[in-house]
């Protein structure tokens, strides 16, 4: 197992180098830079723009900029935001935490819904429950996440039950622990639901397919013949058998925890990475873009590692000597 962890860490290091180098090269290929919009500012002369370009180091060759960025990664800064004038690490890490606060419960909710609906459909393929869950999944897949988010805002505005975005009320600082907990949960409710509903369709199809296949296994039929109840059959026999592909998918979905909520965060004013990243893309604030991309990549590696560990835990074959996940 230690070998697996070591290999994954090596993957992470290679990923950092590959993703960051790709970001730098791609940014170089696209015309314009952070100061491009200033060219339309009548106050700024060409000389002033050149002075600013020199100050930001944008006039240096690509390899020099990349090496100096790598140096800043080693110092724990992850580069320097041109727009905010501060190191990238504190800028993105705080917001990444907010994004995880939203995306972790949303992903958990999406998995829960997908497991329930998938199991419901898999029990009797082609039955009304199956058709209903597949229809629901198809409908959700057809509705863009942006529309779902706008609908949620409309519901919040009309009902007055939920806040209109944000992560906390203005008065949250004056509340006690439980008050703050309720306040954050109220703010979390709609964006979590939107994000979960957007994730459900893909998960649902995989869960249904995996469980359907597992329920057709001979050992499941044998168990049924021995009078094992349907619920126990599903939880104890079919679900562990269906686990390997679903855990692999879980690992992949962990990789989207930071990047998957961008639209919802922007529309619902959630103070996560989304608005910062969007702003950075429009402003060509390269180091912020690379920083956020890297965090996403590292999370993908971590997600896959977690999936491997969970697979190791649920599949006894992998624990045999000589087996590799």
């Amino acid at each position: 197992m230690l070998r697996v962890v070591g290999r994954r860490l090596l993957h992470a290091a290679v990923l950092v180098l590959a993703v960051s180098a790709a970001c730098f090269v791609l940014a170089e290929l696209v015309p314009g830079d952070f100061l491009a919009p200033a060219r339309l500012d009548p106050r700024a002369s060409a000389e002033s723009l050149e002075a600013l370009r020199a100050r930001y180091g944008l006039d240096r060759p690509l390899h020099q900029r990349y090496l100096s960025w790598l140096g800043s990664v080693l110092r724990g800064e992850m580069g320097h935001s041109l727009a905010y004038g501060v190191p990238v690490a504190p800028l993105v890490l705080g917001r990444a935490g907010n994004t995880l606060l939203l995306s972790v419960p949303a992903t958990a909710l999406a998995w829960l819904l997908a497991l329930i609906l998938g199991a419901w459909g898999a029990r009797r393929p082609g039955g009304w429950g199956d058709r209903l869950s597949l229809g629901l999944g198809a409908t959700l897949q057809a509705v863009p996440e942006l529309v779902l988010a706008l609908l949620a805002l409309l519901v919040a505005a009309r009902s007055g039950i939920f806040p209109l975005g944000g992560m906390a009320s203005l008065s949250a600082g004056e509340l006690g622990f439980w008050g703050r907990l309720v306040d954050v949960l109220r703010h979390l409710a709609l964006p979590t639901l939107v994000l979960a509903l957007a994730l459900v369709p893909v998960l649902l199809r995989h869960v249904r397919a995996a469980l359907s296949e597992a329920l057709e296994q001979s050992f499941v039929h044998a168990a049924r013949g021995h009078g094992v109840g349907e619920l126990r059959l599903l939880l104890t026999y079919a679900l562990p058998a269906a686990a390997p592909p679903l855990l692999a998918l879980f690992g992949l979905s962990a990789g989207t925890l930071l990047s998957g909520s961008l639209v919802v965060e922007v529309v619902m004013s959630w103070p996560g990475l989304g608005p910062l990243l969007l702003d950075a893309v429009f402003a060509r604030d390269l180091h912020v873009i690379v920083g956020a991309t890297l965090l996403s990549g590292l999370l993908l590696v971590a997600g896959n590692l977690l999936a491997d560990l969970l697979l190791y835990a649920v599949d006894p074959r992998l624990r045999r000597p000589g087996a590799t996940p």
């Binding site: 706008l150 805002l153 409309l154 919040a156 505005a157 007055g160 209109l164 975005g165 944000g166 203005l170 922007v266 529309v267 619902m268 004013s269 103070p271 608005p275 969007l278 702003d279």
Partner: peptide, 20 residues
């Protein structure tokens, strides 16, 4: 004087309409 960060215009409008 409090500045809220609301990245979308539609959300800004809803908040203004709701008195936030």
């Amino acid at each position: 004087l409090i500045f809220l960060f609301v990245p979308s215009e539609d959300a800004q409008v809803l908040r203004f309409q709701a008195g936030e």
